Computed example of a mutant assay.
Amino acid sequence: MSTDSEYQNAAIMSQKKRVLMICLGNICRSPIAEAVFENEISKRGLKNQWEVESAAIMGYHINKIPDHRALTTLKENGIINYSHRARQITQNDFDKFDWIFGMDNENIQDLNSIKPKKCKTRVELLGSYDSSGEVIIQDPYYDNNSAGFQKAYEQCLRSITVFLDKHSD
Rank of each mutant, 00 (worst) to 15 (best):
M1D: 09
M1F: 05
S2H: 01
D4N: 09
D4Q: 15
S5L: 13
E6G: 08
A10I: 04
I12L: 15
Q15W: 00
R18N: 08
R18I: 00
V19A: 06
M21I: 04
C23T: 04
G25K: 01
I27W: 00
I27P: 05
I27G: 08
P31I: 05
E34N: 11
A35Q: 07
A35Y: 05
V36T: 10
E38Y: 01
E38S: 10
I41C: 01
S42I: 09
S42F: 07
S42P: 01
R44I: 03
G45R: 11
N48E: 08
N48H: 15
W50M: 00
W50P: 03
E51M: 14
V52P: 03
V52Y: 04
A56H: 04
A56E: 12
I57R: 00
I57A: 00
I62C: 07
I62Y: 06
N63H: 12
D67E: 13
D67K: 07
R69S: 10
L71G: 05
K75W: 02
E76P: 08
G78K: 12
I79L: 04
I79G: 12
H84M: 11
A86I: 02
I89E: 04
I89A: 05
Q91E: 13
D93L: 04
D93R: 07
D95L: 05
D95Y: 07
F97Y: 14
W99A: 02
G102Q: 06
N105D: 11
E106Q: 15
E106D: 14
N107Y: 03
I108D: 06
Q109F: 15
D110H: 12
N112M: 05
I114E: 12
I114D: 14
K115M: 09
K117H: 08
K118N: 14
K120A: 07
T121W: 03
T121S: 14
T121I: 02
E124A: 13
L126P: 09
Y129L: 05
S132G: 06
S132K: 08
Q138M: 01
Y142E: 13
D143I: 00
D143W: 09
A147S: 15
A147H: 12
A147M: 14
G148S: 07
Q155C: 13
S159I: 01
I160P: 14
T161M: 05
T161P: 06
H167V: 11
D169M: 10
D169R: 03
